[in-house]
């Protein structure tokens, strides 16, 4: 962040607000819990937090507190007036203020008003990442997790991420019907799950995941802006979806799903259409297929069966087609 959000350039007299704003908006409390005045004051508190551009061994930068560029006058954040001498003391104080700041967002229900904003906002982010995008910050589940996150009994200081995640992962929330298959896979989900569902492996000759991820909207390790990617419905549009279908097609082609791989998939005696559909349903979809979906897939297999070609080539065409079609199911875009 010293580099990405420019704080290395933040100096007394002419502070710049990039990191001060985003640490509060995106990485801790969320909007509504600080004023524009707070942004300007936090920027002043962060002055002098910079980097040493002298080359070190493996990494060209190291952290430096430049006291000469630090603003030594009084600052006022959330009504607290302070000025500490010493390396990063102002920054440490600001971080404590942020972590303990009680939610003052006007659009949040009164029940939230007793909770620290950072605990609430981070808990909400964790829940919408792991459980369901439909969970709002007002949800009781957010309050419950925030309570634990801020004051968990294991660590007196609170904000223990490992303990909080452990609690979440053991939660019954994951079993609620309204939260199952309601999240859109992001491109990395789609690509990695597709490979793992089939236990297929791209190799150096066929590896296409990286360029396809980009065409599905995700340049890995290069998010579009400081907030990261927009998730959920933002991953679905015609251009992105088309590339999901095309990746499924490539995956099912002989370059990756080789003839040997396809032939070994289902024993010759069990190659009836029901067994083929069930084989991929269990691996790709897990939930039930809708009756119409089942009928369409069955019709597809029958069309191939009723056409020309050797039994072996028909079998391979059926398998490759099923992989392509089932990865183009709307259900397969959800997790």
């Amino acid at each position: 962040m010293l580099i990405y959000l420019d704080n290395r350039l933040n100096k007394k007299g002419k502070p710049q607000e990039n990191y001060a704003r985003e640490i509060m908006e995106l990485f801790s409390m969320g909007v509504g819990n600080y004023t524009e005045e707070d942004v300007r004051e936090v920027a002043r508190a962060f002055t002098g937090e910079t980097i040493n551009a002298q080359c070190a061994d493996n990494w060209p930068y190291s952290y430096v507190f430049d006291a000469g560029k630090h603003d030594g006058n009084l600052k006022s954040v959330f009504g607290q007036v302070f000025n500490f001498e010493g390396e990063a003391e102002d920054t440490n104080y600001v971080i404590d203020l942020i972590l303990d700041r009680i939610s003052g967002a006007t659009d949040i229900s009164p029940a939230h008003a007793t909770h620290p904003a950072t605990a609430l906002y981070m808990s909400w982010k964790i829940l919408t990442w792991f459980v369901s995008e439909s969970i709002t910050i007002e949800a009781p589940a957010v309050r419950e997790l925030a309570e634990f996150f801020h004051t968990n009994p294991v660590d007196g200081d609170g904000y223990h991420i490992r303990q909080t995640l452990r609690k979440l992962f053991k939660s019954q929330l994951f079993y609620r019907p309204e939260y199952r298959y309601t999240m859109y896979k992001h491109p990395a989900d789609f690509v990695v799950m597709a490979l793992r569902n089939l236990q297929l492996h791209e190799n150096s000759y066929t590896g296409q995941a990286r360029s396809f991820l980009q065409r599905m909207g995700m340049r890995v390790f290069s998010p579009p802006n400081v907030a990261g990617w927009n998730h959920g419905q933002a991953w679905v549009n015609s251009g992105y979806l088309l590339n999901r279908y095309n990746y499924a097609n490539r995956l099912s082609s002989s370059a990756i799903a080789t003839n040997e791989w396809v032939d070994d998939l289902i024993p010759a005696r069990q190659r009836n259409h029901d067994a083929m559909i069930e084989f991929f349903r269990a691996r790709l979809i897990q939930t039930e297929l809708r009756p119409q979906e089942y009928a369409i897939l069955n019709d597809f297999l029958s069309e191939i069966q009723n056409g020309g070609g050797s039994a072996q080539s028909k079998y391979r065409r059926k398998i490759r087609g099923l992989i392509h079609l089932m990865m183009a199911l709307p259900q397969y875009q959800l997790k």
Binding site: R215, N237, S238, G239, Y240, L242, N243, Y245, N246, N249, R250, S252, S253, S254, E293, I296, L297, D299, F300, E303, I304, R317, R320, G321, H324, L325, A328, L329, P330
Partner: peptide, 30 residues
């Protein structure tokens, strides 16, 4: 739903075999 198109070059459905059959089935499934 508005089409979203990075580039016309990459905006095409690829089907390695049984093109018409597969496209018809994908259409029906959706």
């Amino acid at each position: 739903a508005p089409p979203t198109i990075d580039s016309p070059d990459a905006y095409d459905l690829e089907v390695s075999s049984d093109r018409a059959l597969r496209l018809a089935a994908i259409s029906a499934l959706n």
